[in-house]
Design a protein around this nucleic acid. Sequence first.
DNA 1: GTATAAACGAGACGGTACGTCAGGTCTTTCT
DNA 2: AGAAAGACCTGACGTACCGTCTCGTTTATAC
Lengths: 205, 205, 205, 205
Amino acid sequence: MNKTDEPSKGNASGGRPRDKQVTERILKAALELGEESGFDGLTAEGVAARAEVGKMTIYRRWPNVWAVVVDAVLAEVSRVSPVVERERTRESLTASMKLVGKSFRGRHGRLFRPLIGRAQTDDTLRAAIDERWLSPRREHSRGIVRRGIARGELRPDLDPDVVIDALYGPLYHRLLLPYSGTEVRITDAYIDALVDAVFGGIQKD
Amino acid sequence: MNKTDEPSKGNASGGRPRDKQVTERILKAALELGEESGFDGLTAEGVAARAEVGKMTIYRRWPNVWAVVVDAVLAEVSRVSPVVERERTRESLTASMKLVGKSFRGRHGRLFRPLIGRAQTDDTLRAAIDERWLSPRREHSRGIVRRGIARGELRPDLDPDVVIDALYGPLYHRLLLPYSGTEVRITDAYIDALVDAVFGGIQKD
Amino acid sequence: MNKTDEPSKGNASGGRPRDKQVTERILKAALELGEESGFDGLTAEGVAARAEVGKMTIYRRWPNVWAVVVDAVLAEVSRVSPVVERERTRESLTASMKLVGKSFRGRHGRLFRPLIGRAQTDDTLRAAIDERWLSPRREHSRGIVRRGIARGELRPDLDPDVVIDALYGPLYHRLLLPYSGTEVRITDAYIDALVDAVFGGIQKD
Amino acid sequence: MNKTDEPSKGNASGGRPRDKQVTERILKAALELGEESGFDGLTAEGVAARAEVGKMTIYRRWPNVWAVVVDAVLAEVSRVSPVVERERTRESLTASMKLVGKSFRGRHGRLFRPLIGRAQTDDTLRAAIDERWLSPRREHSRGIVRRGIARGELRPDLDPDVVIDALYGPLYHRLLLPYSGTEVRITDAYIDALVDAVFGGIQKD
DNA sequence: GTATAAACGAGACGGTACGTCAGGTCTTTCT
DNA sequence: AGAAAGACCTGACGTACCGTCTCGTTTATAC
């Protein structure tokens, strides 16, 4: 998504080197403007002005403003909410989900939502989200589930992805499409109820 | 979301009435253009041209192009994929989910994705999706779950919304954020596996 | 210019007759709006609204708003400022010029200016001004000059139109193009000075 | 009227400078389009298209299309038809008038008419015509008349402006309001007759 | 007195142009 | 060569009016 690591041609030969602080200022400006007045209203000109930077300086690093936002948001989001591992599978998954839930409730939710929204019509963006957020977490979680099965904590006939979907799917659903008529916030209590239902099954035995 | 049913002031007295066929042409044009060249590239001018309509005629009915798309898409989508009810709760839910799955796999998925995407930065749109798609289905589904509990098919301590989230959340998740590294299509087999996991619980007894 | 006297086809047989009061209301509205907010900003919709009339009712009588203005303004202007005739040629011309001067200084000047302005790019309008203002006056004035020559008051070798131009030309010039740097109003004193110069000649004998 | 000489803020440091050729292309396009299809039908979009220029590029330099026309036409018109001076006052005035007459008969008349027309409802335009055409000529002509008086060629009691009005007024009158019923072109013969009448006086001695 | 026919107020309709905004590129000068 | 400034072409925005075309209603004459 970004071009930061491919400095125009190859900085081997002469030329003024890119100013890292300039890059930072642009990322910061994009994030600030997005949070202040909405990411859909974000413009390259606005970001350039806020960062006190020429428009060209942005386009030299990224192909468009949304690529800036991806870099800005994903850097932020990935830093927090790691997948954590505990002794028991259920606890590993619950703890990780609660970290995600906390993220989604707060600033990261506000950042993530427009990003995922935009990704619905921007394949590059969708790929970036997959590569830098979804897939690493998914892979890690699959390991946890597999080890849970190996240790005999989980049913052996399960597809790990189905398990993860059943647990995380509701979180994304509530982040992106909060139906009305009830409380839809992603609280820890909600996650506990969810984990309880999925682990125990909803069927009366 | 739409203004179709509120003709400017109240057409009781004078004035040429709105032409229903014109409204249809606009909705059709919006849908066609969106599917052909992407909903993000949709413009009021493009729709007007395709529908052979003046721009004002669009703005007289809707506040912007996206309001047109909402009406066009939700009318389409709501018509199909109803919530169905069978004798046994599990079958009711599975059948309804499979209808949604089929929708998401095909044309409706292609229509729905950009709509939900846009809704992440457009509250009016989000409200419209809630009101005309999510909430009616949710309400209906809650009834099914409640009756399932009453009939003793489901655990009596469950929150119906948690159940519905665990089942439908994954479908939305896969529609909107198909992580890579595995097959992520919403097939009937996937739904079966999901229902099996959630109904039976993932824990080894 | 107007169509008032040709009611669509011939009202011989059935049909509701045109309402004279409606015509009056339109003319009045056009004049009022023009004087209030400038004739260039005049719109058919504005006039219709002010006259509390449907747009069609205007277009049934005139081909466009400016035709309304012509009728409104020329009816006004022609009523006043006739060509008057006195015993001596010089007095006839001076008196007529002073009536025109008075018109130009006041309301009629404000009405006439935009009309003549518009006429520069609208030949129908130019023809209407000629037919209903310029030519009748011109013809009358030519008679006065010719009789002045016949009576021996004026030089016999003169072209009457040249005489009239020399006298009236300056009035139109000042109405339409008031150069700065001096007092350019069309006062009676100015007309006296002008008549004196033209009658007596500017050459030192 | 124009903004050409005030490049946004002060181009002292940074920023791409305005392209003079672009300015020329716009002026040329405005003039061409005006002459081809009438100045009243002139549109900013048309001029931009013809000049192969973005609309913004026009609005960056002028506040609206008519300001472009003013610059285009007045630059043209002022270049030709200067006030000339001969040995004798009568000859100075006749020669200058004939230059104006020639201008009015030809291309400049076609350019000037719509400009003066528009000036009747546009004060900025009127001021521009005064400043860049009328007043310089008027001032020069006043000098000629005053020197004529000083040299004893003209009556000493005359107001120079009245003299100039009597001579030039008819030319503008005929340019703008050619009454019908006779030949109204501004020929050299007409100017000779006019000068003869005004210099000699129309009164029989 | 009832039918016919046009005028009327209202406002929808397909258009054209407005003046503004932003996108992404290009071109200066300065560092 | 990078950076800041800003001109450049493009194309869409939402608005205002144009002149035409229905609507349902009113108001005359003609049968």
